[in-house]
Every structure is written in structure tokens, then in C-alpha cells.
Design a protein around this nucleic acid. Structure first.
Lengths: 201, 201
DNA sequence: GCCCGGCAGTGACAGATGTCACCTCCCGGC
DNA sequence: GCCGGGAGGTGACATCTGTCACTGCCGGGC
């Protein structure tokens, strides 16, 4: 029996995936979580073979969970199932020792097959995602640039961003200008978009 | 038997919801579609009792489908299942005669119960969504303001937007300024965010 | 016939943003 | 002990944005 915990914030999707996997004779859904913290609790108490988790959830993300479980040397293999093919997400997943990375776009057979592969000790990362991640390179932004960009995305002015970060407006301007330069963007909006598309925000 | 067609672009979610609904003895999943056009074809050829559809899909959206089926006086009841609680979406759905509007956040029981209600001739719209839609009011933007805002969101400058829309940069500036005013936003970024959050883009 | 609203534009102005050069600190590596 | 890089900053400059006033054209409603 392959013992599985599923974490996913959208109740309908959580229930549906659980129903789908329950159809497989050798799968046992031993727990369900609606956010990252609940997922961690379940994994710690149940030590399932596999944690199947979304990335974007309230509280801790699936990637956060993977990182934490990696430092705890948990015996549970983490598999990510997400909507987003963002290179930065894949990179962080790999760094956190994630054993599978699937898109919600994929047909259902893929998920079932991937779970069996991971349960058998394997690794599943779609080659086209790996290629895109390779092409995108790694996150060029510094922490402060990321901070500034995140606030700029929300429509705050340099002055407001400065206030929030405890900086001078000039410094904020410099950070955003630098970030735009690194990302090949003409302005803060484009910079925010490309950073987000790459999973760097 | 309640005959159902499901439309959803994320293969995994599509398959999972189909698996979930197939567990109900009185439900028959007669068709699955990965985009709006395929959904329309299926509804026309199979005339199911219910079309269960996502909104954001490649090609025609679920709302587009609902509108088209409404003009065709199709006997199929349309139910929307979406991630987004945007007032504008709900408003358009109601205008298109949609019979059910559910969030993917909801627990699975809700979906099953809602399908039975709609199949029996009822209507399902969560009261908290209806309240939010009421509060948000209706879309204050004109078509041209929407066009300009959509391009502004992508980081284009006034000059670039003007070129794309065949306008003068000054006119674009006026549209964006007007839109920001109507939306109570301090700049184009905030304006874009609130318009999108309300489902007006 | 008049008024309103959407669409399109111009001109002027203040303030925000983007770019660049150049500065100081501090920390870690060699 | 020196160098580089990240963090934080300043000043100057050009350009872009946001705001306002005021123009004109068209079409629909009363």
C-alpha cells in the first residue's frame, strides 16, 4: 500500500483528487490538509510514503513544507502539484529535495504513474519544465530588490515603498531601476510581471 | 439520471472532478472538454442536463459559453465552478442565465448538492458572493478605458498603448486617469488591480 | 431641439519615475 | 590588509505619468 497525504487549499479540488486516487487499489489516502501547517502536522504524525501538495496555499506554501521536511530528514517523499510552470518554483523545489513536480494541466494518468514512480524511489520532473528552468537561469534579484518589487506591484509609490521598508525614496528608486535592468524590463510593472512569471517573487 | 458535461482546462482537475461525480449513483458524466469550444460542441450534440464549467479557459471562457447557450435557448443548465469570487464574474454569469455559481474553495458536498438542486430546476448562488457583488456595484469602465487598462497592466507606456489602440498618447493618459478616478486608485497599477479583482477586466 | 455620454484630442503643469554617477558603511574572503 | 559586493544613500537630469481644462464629433433619449 502507498500511503498518501494530500494538501490543497481548494476544497473541491482536494476532495476530487482524493476521490480520484482512492480509485487505485494500491493507494491509501491517509490524510487531507487545507494548508501547509496542517499538512506538516499530518506528515509528522502519520509519516506517509508521499505528501502530495499544492504550492500556493494560505500560511506555509508547499515549497516551505518541502524545505522544512528536508531539514527534518523526514522519510516522506514530497511531490508538488501546481498550476504554475515557473522556473523559480522548480528550482526551489529541487533545492528542497522534492521528488516529483507535476502541473495540474497534465492528464490524470500522469499523476497516478508519477506517484508509483516516486513511491518506488524514483523522481519525476517533466523534461520540458526542466528545459524552461535551465533557459530562465537563476534568480538575479537581491532580497531588497524583491521586497521593493513586491510592493511596487501593488501600486505603491516610491515614497510609500520607502516608508514601508524603512528606506529613502531614492534608494527604492535605485532598487527598482536595478531590478528592471537585470530583468530586461522597461519599468516596474514589466519587471514585476517577469519576476512573477519566473517564480522569483 | 442527471446527465453532465464538464469543462475545465486543467486536465488533472477535470479528471478528478469527473471521478468524484461518477461516484454518485444518479450522475452520468457524458462528456469532458478542455476548453470552451469543445464544451459548446459537446453540449450541442449531447444536450446534457447540466454543463459544469470553469471560467478561465483557453479560447472561449465559461461565461462566453453560458452567453452563447442562452441566446441559443439551450435546454442545458449552466453551472460555473471557479477559483474567483469576482463580483463582475457573478454579474455576467447572472446576466447569462447561469443557474449555479460555485467556488473551488467549497467542500465537495456543496458541489454534489448544488448539481441536484440545479437539475431539479433550482438556482445556487452563495449568499456571501451575492452580497459582495451587491457591494461592489457594477462595472464603471467604458470599453476604451478597459482596453487601455489591460495594456497598461502589461507594463506598456502611454505611447505604446496609443500605438496599439490607434490613439494619441494624450488620450490614453486621459482614459487611464479617468479609470483611476472611477476606481479610486492612485495610479494605473492600482487601477488595474482593483479592476481585475472585481472581474471587470 | 437640446442635453448627455462616449470617444478622441490638445496644451499645460506638477509630481513621479527611470537613469546615472558617485558616496559611505559593513562584512566576508583571501 | 585589501578587495568585492550588498545595503543604504544623495544629487542631477530626462522622461513619463497623472490631472485638469477645454475642444470637437457623434448618437441616443426626451
Amino acid at each position: 500500500m502507498i500511503r498518501i497525504v494530500i494538501a490543497e487549499d481548494q476544497g473541491l479540488v482536494l476532495g476530487a483528487i482524493a476521490a480520484l486516487l482512492a480509485l487505485e487499489a494500491d493507494f491509501a489516502i491517509v490524510g487531507r490538509a487545507g494548508d501547509g501547517d496542517a499538512a506538516l502536522d499530518l506528515v509528522r504524525t502519520l509519516t506517509p510514503d508521499i505528501l502530495l501538495t499544492d504550492i500556493e496555499m494560505p500560511g506555509r506554501t508547499g515549497l516551505d513544507c518541502a524545505q522544512i521536511l528536508a531539514t527534518e530528514r523526514a522519510r516522506t517523499a514530497v511531490m508538488i502539484v501546481t498550476t504554475f510552470a515557473r522556473p523559480g518554483y522548480l528550482a526551489r523545489a529541487r533545492a528542497a529535495g522534492v521528488r516529483g513536480y507535476l502541473l495540474k494541466d497534465a492528464p490524470v494518468d500522469t499523476l497516478v504513474a508519477a506517484i508509483r514512480t516516486v513511491a518506488a524511489g524514483g523522481r519525476v520532473i517533466p523534461p520540458e519544465l526542466a528545459a524552461a528552468a535551465w533557459e530562465a537561469g537563476s534568480d538575479p534579484l537581491t532580497d531588497r530588490e524583491r521586497d521593493a518589487l513586491r510592493l511596487a506591484e501593488e501600486g505603491l509609490s516610491n515614497k510609500d515603498i520607502a516608508r514601508r521598508l524603512g528606506l529613502s525614496p531614492g534608494t527604492v528608486r535605485n532598487y527598482l531601476s536595478e531590478a528592471a535592468g537585470k530583468l530586461g524590463a522597461a519599468n516596474r510593472i514589466e519587471a514585476g510581471r517577469t519576476a512573477r512569471a519566473n517564480g522569483w517573487l
